[in-house]
């Protein structure tokens, strides 16, 4: 916990510094038209740095006992996280529908050990249903890949 607290607070301080930097470019003063563009971001950034500094000091003084995540906890979390990231990466290449099918099928088989029939059925039907709901009824285009291009969508 202690390490995570330190890292998060330091990261937020860095963010605060970026904000303050950008705000000073925009002007942080108070003109006749009220505050300038950078006025609020500047003070938000300053306050953020200050608050995180205090959190940092408090966390540094505290003896860290409980770890942020135990090994037993990290496993399941990663098992959800990395396929989700893979889904996003794949979407960029294959489009959303194909990736969603692969991802759903993989996950069902890997984690749930569902039968191949169920896996296949859902991996095909779910993206298809999504396709009809978004592309056809609501006319919201989703990222598409080679398959959709080939099908002329």
């Amino acid at each position: 916990m202690r390490i995570a607290d330190l890292v998060t607070a330091s990261f937020l301080m860095l963010l605060g510094a970026i904000v303050v930097f950008d705000a000073s470019r925009l002007g942080v003063g108070w003109s006749t038209d009220g505050p300038k563009s950078g006025f609020f971001p500047f003070w938000l950034g300053v306050l953020l740095i200050a608050a995180c500094a205090v959190i940092l000091v408090q966390a540094a003084r505290r003896a860290g006992l409980a770890p942020f995540v135990t090994r037993a906890q990290a496993g399941p979390v990663l098992k959800v996280l990395w396929p989700a990231v893979a889904l996003v990466v794949l979407t960029q290449w294959l489009g959303l529908y194909v990736s969603a099918g692969l991802y759903t099928g993989f996950y069902m088989r890997w984690i749930g050990r569902h039968s191949w029939l169920a896996v296949l059925a859902l991996a095909i039907l779910f993206p298809l249903a999504t396709f009809f709901i978004f592309e056809k009824w609501f006319l919201v285009p989703m990222p598409k890949g080679p398959l959709e291009a080939w099908l002329g969508q």
């Binding site: 959303l96 969603a100 991802y103 759903t104």
Partner: peptide
Amino acid sequence: PFAILTPVIVVVCAV
């Protein structure tokens, strides 16, 4: 089941 619901939720969130 969890192994079905999770990917469905994640995909719906992404969409």
